[in-house]
């Protein structure tokens, strides 16, 4: 009887704790938005963060994009060949990249490259009292540290996703056209006929913006909320990667259901 009550109490405590954390996270997110004006007035702060979130993620994004596109080219060719429609390779590669793989894979890479870095950095700044020091210098850490990182990462994410897709399509082109010898004209023209700017490309960009906001908000909150110890920061970093990966995939399903249901 007692153990039953205890486990019920355990569930209750977890639920209450979870809801409470959600509330704190929401308030934190609203605070970031409220304090954003100041960071836009001092844009060089955001530029710094675009550098660390975007430029430093370039290599992994470009290389992964190229390889994903090349694999798509190979696998797609093998499958399409059985139906005698190799010319549709461009369509297959570009639609899978622009709609799904570009935004999703780029966001997953971004979460593990830039998101974890953001969490670790903010967590360590908190653990070493840098945030408290800032507060004592009458500088709001949310405005000075958190908001610029938020906007830097949110601006970087769609650009990275677009580069990922573009690299992937080039990779598919390299394998399909240059290596295997699919007709170049058919590759591009079928692609252009099938890919719609608004329906496919803009929706893909919109996805990556949503993922960028989600990943960055999670990373910042985990860092800001991390217990100020070495163990706390390392756990928060792991949680950032896990939570934001799940968030990306879950959001992707919801967004896809809304965007492409008509097809």
């Amino acid at each position: 009887m007692n153990s039953l009550l205890d486990s019920l109490r355990g569930i209750g405590a977890r639920v209450i704790d979870g809801i409470w954390r959600m509330g704190v996270a929401t308030r934190f997110f609203l605070m970031i938005l409220l304090q954003s004006g100041q960071s836009f007035r001092r844009f060089h702060l955001i530029i710094r963060e675009i550098y660390s979130a975007g430029v430093l993620s370039l290599i992994i994004i470009l290389v992964s994009g190229l390889f994903v596109g090349m694999v798509l080219g190979l696998q797609g060719y093998e499958t399409l060949q059985t139906y005698g429609s190799e010319e549709a390779l461009g369509v297959l590669v570009s639609l899978s990249l622009v709609r799904e793989l570009g935004p999703v894979v780029a966001a997953l890479l971004f979460a593990s490259r830039a998101g974890s870095a953001i969490t670790a950095e903010i967590g360590l700044m908190k653990a070493t009292e840098q945030l408290a020091a800032m507060e004592m210098m009458a500088v709001d850490p949310v405005a000075r540290v958190v908001a610029p990182r938020f906007w830097g990462a949110v601006i970087s994410m769609p650009l990275l996703a677009a580069m990922f897709s573009a690299m992937g399509i080039l990779g598919g082109y390299l394998v399909g056209v240059v290596l295997i010898g699919v007709d170049e004209g058919a590759f591009w023209s079928q692609m252009q006929a099938a890919v719609d700017f608004r329906e496919d490309i803009l929706n893909g960009v919109l996805k990556s913006v949503v993922f960028g906001v989600a990943v960055t908000a999670i990373a910042l909150f985990e860092g800001y909320d991390a217990p100020p110890t070495a163990e706390g920061v390392s756990r928060a970093t792991t949680r950032t990667v896990v939570t934001s990966s799940l968030a990306i995939l879950g959001l992707d399903f919801i967004l896809t259901a809304f965007m492409f249901r008509g097809v």
């Binding site: 950095e121 360590l124 700044m125 070493t128 009292e129 840098q130 408290a132 020091a133 800032m134 004592m136 210098m137 009458a138 709001d140």
Partner: peptide, 20 residues
């Protein structure tokens, strides 16, 4: 409070310098 803090300085236990 922020106005008042501009007239305060604080030295933290391990300095709390901005590492970046």
């Amino acid at each position: 409070l922020y106005q008042l803090r501009r007239r305060m300085g604080m030295l933290f236990q391990f300095g709390a310098l901005f590492t970046d």
